[in-house]
């Protein structure tokens, strides 16, 4: 059976996860792969968005079956844990932003320790890294960087960069790439320590 890569992204609307799904999809096409994504979104209403991304030699359905997700990326941990419990495969990886927007004050510890029970995790403060890259709204690109910095990254960085050049005006590209780099470095640092 040819391998299909299966990634889920979740976040709140303003985290801009659909932009990342768009970049991943275009990068997959740039690598001459078949790709399908499913976007669960509720346009302008404040709500949790989710995106399934599947790419490989041949992709049938855009939906990832429960228990099959290989990498689960979440920008808002509190809202994502239940979805992760449903979809993550037994040997799956979770990349978690530790700065919650929905509950910045309540302790995240119990939620984060549950993530650890679900499987392998990479944790990073994406909002803080985004701020360092110049803009809190780049947290989505930090998470994309974390994916690329993880073991066995699914796509080549040059194809991701090519896709970003399609989507962002030239004056914003540098900041996006910087955010990606911060995400990557943070993950590499974690795996070395």
């Amino acid at each position: 059976m040819p391998k299909v890569r299966e990634i889920i992204l979740t976040g709140l609307r303003f985290h801009g996860i659909l932009k990342i799904s768009q970049i991943l999809a275009q990068a997959a096409v740039n690598e001459r792969m078949d790709v399908k994504t499913a976007e669960f979104t509720n346009e302008p209403i404040m709500s949790i968005e989710m995106c399934h991304i599947r790419f490989g030699d041949k992709v049938y359905s855009p939906l990832i079956s429960k228990g099959n997700c290989e990498v689960f990326i979440c920008l808002e941990p509190v809202s994502a844990i239940e979805v992760a419990a449903d979809y993550l495969s037994m040997d799956g990886l979770m990349i978690i932003n530790t700065s919650s927007t929905l509950s910045p004050a309540t302790s995240l510890e119990p939620v984060l320790s549950l993530f650890d029970q679900l499987g392998r995790t990479i944790k990073l403060d994406a909002l803080e890294l985004a701020r360092k890259a110049g803009n809190v709204y780049l947290a989505n690109f930090v998470m994309l960087g974390a994916l690329l910095g993880s073991k066995d990254p699914p796509l080549k960085i040059e194809n991701i960069t090519r896709a970003i050049k399609n989507i962002k005006p030239p004056d914003e590209i540098q900041a996006c790439l910087k955010a990606i780099d911060f995400g990557m470095q943070s993950v590499i640092k974690q795996s070395n320590s």
Binding site: V35, K36, T37, E39, T41, V59, P62
Partner: peptide, 9 residues
Amino acid sequence: NRILYGRSS
């Protein structure tokens, strides 16, 4: 909806 809200090659 599943075709409209989702991308593919």
